[in-house]
Structures are given as structure tokens and as C-alpha cells.
Design a protein around this nucleic acid. Structure first.
Lengths: 242, 242
DNA sequence: TAGTGGTCTAGACCACCTG
DNA sequence: AGGTGGTCTAGACCACTAG
């Protein structure tokens, strides 16, 4: 049973995405919506603040709430700090395009020093190292490397890496929700190795996103690093100043 | 008079930055802090949720709140969706390094079509076009282009562009706070023109950040686009999944 | 003046973690 | 069992926008 404000947020998000509320249109006031959904204003506000932060609406003091005029784009958006999940490629894009994965490498290794630091592990412990290529409609667009604490997940079925969502599997396997922390975005150029994996030229621009993933109990279990073709991806960064 | 939860947030942030709360240390419970600050838990939670989102603390259900172990970096961080402001380069970096600006161009022009769209302007209206170079300790690190609706700000003193914060000036001039919306991060390569401005080689990697700035009454007044040397900047993206 | 979002109170109950 | 964060109620007053 999800929290009420999450349900309300999703309900209104649906109303926006399905154009029941038109772009730029004023939506009902907090007090009206609170009555509609049978909650207090405080609860309704929690939902609306999330919608604002994710860029669906604008809240203007004294005037009301308006559906944001959205500009469509011909590149794929990596949602960063917004949307229901940065948690896995397939969840984000599964609905708008045909996503496939190609497993390049999967082995258990002793944890590299810099990974051990990120995951708060001891040097003798082991991690899964996983390298996958993601394809949109058959075109390879990014390489993703993951280091996953073997103590959290002993075995990872090949079928999950090839066709499923790793994060979904982990949430089911552990029974815990996932949190992202401190992800970092960098720009760089594709080197020979990565370019070869994507069948592109060395020296093309890349967006690199790396970060630690934790379980809701605070346990860090994954360090991941994705190398994205900069001509295929933008990162949306909806944010509202204070 | 700022809101109480903003004051509390800043107070605890100071306690963390000054190491009165050590890295990784557990901080007092919500109920304790609420008493300390003389507010209810709801108000205190608003402060703590912001600190969590900005990456200062981790909140773990049933256990408590902990100061995040921070990894220091030898590159400059552009805060994106976090910190007190993405609002202007000088505010972000003024304390850790010597920031200077170099005004390359400033003229009033008829609003270009794509800018008019972003700022909801008519084709015959005018904008300030401003191109500045930013230097850290004397080294040029980024180019920033801004298009500012002339109806919002008629004149912009040269001294502001050379030495001050444009956003601070606008907040003072209009008497309104500033909001950012829908900023987008892209990766690209420096072309000849931009590379020349920074005295670097063409083809080096770049992080491009663009977005619209609005006043708190919803009025869009500025479209800006910054071209950052990818070897000098990372973008921190503190975020907590739901 | 009426309506809107922004903030805050003083409680309550639940879900989770640890001893 | 006791402490922690997560959610929610039913109010209240303030600040801002509009006609």
C-alpha cells in the first residue's frame, strides 16, 4: 500500500500525461483537490511539490497551479533527480522505444580498491562486475559498468542481465526499495575500447553518469558508471529554486 | 524574514560543514531537534528532507539520521538541483576560489525565434544578448550566453556584468526571487569559436547546461546556456529515490 | 475583498530497527 | 519494548494576486 500522496501524485501525473489537463492550463486549487481526494491540504501539497520538482507543474503564489508547457525532444532523456526512477534503463525507456541489452562481461572478482571505498567494503570481499551495452531499437547507445557487492546478491541470473531489470530483481530479491545517492555527471570523449563496443568513432562526446546505489536501510550495494553517447542523450534537470 | 524551516536547514548545514557533526556521525532524532529549535516535527522534517536531497544527510527509517560521508574532489562542482543556488557562478564559487568575469559581448537585439519560444515573447520584442567568460584563478573555464527579456530589465550596468552577480542584481531590481526550470545537461565538443574564447583546443569535451530562469511570479525572463570545460567541472546530482 | 499558495501547530498512528 | 523516521489530520494565520 503506497502512501496516499504518492497515489495522488501519480493520479494527477496521469491526468497531465493523458492531456486531461491541457498544457499551460490552470489546474484546480489545493483546497479543491484536497476535497476531491479526501485528504488535507498538507497531504495534497506533498504530491504537488513533487510534481513541481519533476517539472510537470508550476506553482505560483497567489495565482494557482499550471501545467508546464513541455518541449518535446528528439533525443532520449535521462531523468536525473526526477521521474519515478533513475533506477535502470529499461524502466525509463521501455515504453517509448524497444530497448535491448547485450551482456558483454559478467564475473565475480575481488573488489577493486576504489569500488571498495564507495561501497564501504573490505579489500578481500568480492563483487560482481557486469558490463552491458544498451540498445535502442537495435542501435547501441551506451555502455554500463556495475560493481555489485556479492554479499548482497550471491547470484544474478543471466536472464535478468540480458532481458530484465537488474534493479527490479534486486528489489524483489532483497525485499527492499532502492535509493540513489550522490550521482555525478561528467563530460568526456569515447576512448577506443568503449567506442568499439558501440561501433562508433573514438573521440566522440560522451556523458558519463556514475553513482552509488543503496538499499533503503542505508546499505550500499552497487557502484555503477554509464557511458552515454552525447548525441543520443540529454539529462533533464527539473529543479525549483528556493 | 525567512521561513523557519529554511533557517533550521541552514543552521544544521552549518553544523555539518563546520564539523560540529562529524562525517558518518548520527545526528539527534527529529523529536530532539524539534524541541531544540522549538518547532513541531513537521517543520523540522521539511528542513531535514532538504538536507537529505542536497546530499548532506541520509535518513534511515527506524535507525536515525546520519551525516553523509563526503568525497572531496579536485574539480569544481556545478550544483544542479541542489545547494542554495544554481543561480550564478559567482555565488557558487566565490568562497573557494577567485572568480572573475570577462565581458565579451553585450548588445540589445531583436529576440531570436528559438529564444522567443522559451521566454514566451513576441517576435518584435527585444532582448539583451550577453556573452561572458568565467575564469577561476585567472584560468578561463566556461563561456556563458544569456538572453534576457528587455521588458524585465531595461538596462544592465556594465559593472554588474564584469564584477557582480547578474541574478543578484535582477532580484534587487525587480524585488522578486528567481526560480530555475527545466534545465538540460548535454555533452558536446568545443568548436573553434568557443575554444578560442577559452584558449583551448577545438574538440575538447564540454558540458553544456541550458535553461530558462523565471521570477517567482512565473514570468520567464532569461534563457541561458553555458559551455563548461569538462575537465574542470562535474555536476553533482544529489537525489534520493522514492 | 476573495481566492490562492506558503507556513506552522499539536497532536495521532504506522512501519521499521535494535536490544 | 522503546526509539526512530513516515504519514496524515484539522485546523490556523500569513503573503501574494487579482478584480
Amino acid at each position: 500500500m503506497a502512501a496516499r500522496y504518492i497515489e495522488i501524485k501519480k493520479s494527477i501525473q496521469d491526468d497531465i500525461l493523458s492531456h486531461r489537463y491541457q498544457l499551460g492550463e490552470k489546474i484546480p486549487s489545493e483546497r479543491e483537490l484536497a476535497v476531491q481526494y479526501g485528504v488535507t491540504r498538507v497531504t495534497l501539497q506533498k504530491a504537488m511539490h513533487i510534481l513541481e520538482q519533476e517539472g510537470f507543474i508550476e506553482r505560483i503564489h497567489g495565482k494557482g497551479m499550471y501545467v508546464t508547457k513541455v518541449i518535446e525532444d528528439n533525443v532520449y532523456m535521462l531523468n536525473s533527480g526526477t521521474g519515478d526512477s533513475i533506477l535502470g534503463f529499461s524502466r525509463e525507456f521501455g515504453q517509448q522505444a524497444k530497448i535491448t541489452s547485450q551482456l558483454v562481461q559478467h564475473e565475480q572478482i575481488q573488489v577493486p580498491q576504489w569500488v571498495a571505498q564507495q561501497l564501504e567494503m573490505q579489500p578481500e570481499q568480492r563483487v560482481h562486475f557486469i558490463r552491458r551495452i544498451r540498445l535502442i531499437d537495435g542501435v547501441p547507445v551506451l555502455v554500463e559498468d556495475s560493481w555489485i557487492n556479492s554479499d548482497v546478491i550471491e547470484t544474478i541470473p543471466g536472464s535478468v542481465l540480458e532481458h530484465g531489470s537488474l534493479y527490479e530483481y534486486i528489489e524483489k530479491y532483497t525485499g527492499k526499495k532502492i535509493k540513489f545517492y550522490n550521482s555525478v555527471i561528467e563530460g568526456d570523449l569515447f576512448n577506443e575500447e568503449l567506442a568499439a563496443l558501440l561501433s562508433i568513432s573514438e573521440g566522440l562526446p560522451m556523458l558519463k553518469v556514475s553513482g552509488v546505489t543503496k538499499l533503503e536501510d542505508g546499505k550500499a550495494f552497487n557502484f555503477s558508471c554509464s557511458y552515454n553517447r552525447a548525441d543520443k542523450f540529454k539529462i533533464k534537470n527539473s529543479w525549483v529554486g528556493k
